[in-house]
């Protein structure tokens, strides 16, 4: 059997409104230079929580720890009231987390249909649920239904982005981790994703967004965290934060230029 026998609870019903908490996480590859050094943050349902920071601040590592791709050295991760610090990605998916990595993450030589099926890998033993999810997906994105026999690599950039989003949403996640949506992606495609993020927030989902594109991210944010050198720096609601944006970012620019 592939996969662990991690508890697979019903993501769609049990955890419709779960907050995601990262508590004093230390992570990295060498004790003398942790990438994250006691980082704490919290993402609430119906909110877009944004994590900002200069290059190398550890933003992407935050998401990787939350999703179980990097094991933390110390600290804990909770979703709702459940400690998930040691769970593999598969179990986190089952608890309603989903992760959209940087860049283009479709499998180019798999068909659209197969790509979507991979999005339902955690339900591979539950045919009824898979069929229902696919039906829902095709109802929402009829384009994909027409394209389903095509190889994902042959789609246009916009269609690939749509496929990624559709695949992300297939298991009906409640907590969305989104990594650098504007890196390596054409600007018009980035906008598609921001629109989706706002929609997900309005549907009550918990969204945690890591972004280089400070202004765009802050414009859809409800709450903002900033990191510097793997530590929490500032955080606050968007309104409070917007005024200090220029000052903070200016500082990072100097950090980037003078490492």
């Amino acid at each position: 059997m592939i996969g662990s026998s991690a508890p697979i609870s019903d993501a769609a019903t049990n955890n419709t409104r779960s907050s995601l908490v990262m508590d004093k996480i230390t992570a990295g590859y060498h004790a003398d230079q942790w990438v994250l050094n006691g980082v704490s943050l919290r993402a609430e349902p119906e909110r877009v929580t944004v994590v900002l920071g200069p290059n190398g601040a550890g933003k992407s590592t935050v998401l990787k720890v939350l999703y179980g791709l990097v094991a933390p050295h110390a600290g804990s991760v909770r979703v709702g009231d459940q400690d998930i610090t040691r769970l593999p990605p598969e179990a986190r998916l089952a608890l309603g987390l989903a992760y959209l990595p940087q860049g283009h993450s479709v499998f180019p030589s798999l068909t659209v249909q197969e790509n979507l099926e991979m999005g339902l890998w955690i339900y591979r033993h539950d045919r009824a649920r898979r069929e229902e999810a696919l039906e829902r997906c095709f109802a929402e994105y009829p384009v994909l239904k027409d394209l389903r026999a095509k190889l994902a690599g042959s789609l246009s950039g916009g269609q690939q982005r749509l496929l990624e989003v559709a695949r992300l949403m297939l298991p009906n996640p409640t907590v969305l981790l989104i990594d650098e949506p504007s890196v390596g992606v054409a600007p018009n495609l980035v906008d598609i994703l921001y629109e989706h993020i706002v929609r997900w927030r309005n549907q009550g989902k918990t969204v945690l967004l890591v972004d280089q594109n400070v202004e765009a991210a802050v414009s859809i944010a409800d709450y903002v965290y900033t990191l510097e050198s793997g530590r929490n720096r500032l955080d606050g609601p968007r309104d409070e934060f917007e005024g200090r944006l220029r000052e903070v970012v200016g500082q990072w620019l100097r950090l980037d230029v003078l490492p």
Binding site: G28, Y29, H30, D32, V35, V70
Partner: peptide
């Protein structure tokens, strides 16, 4: 060098 090692890990998506 730790830097080189961690970069490799990053590159592998660890």
């Amino acid at each position: 060098t730790p830097a080189a090692t961690s970069e490799r890990l990053e590159a592998r998506g660890a």
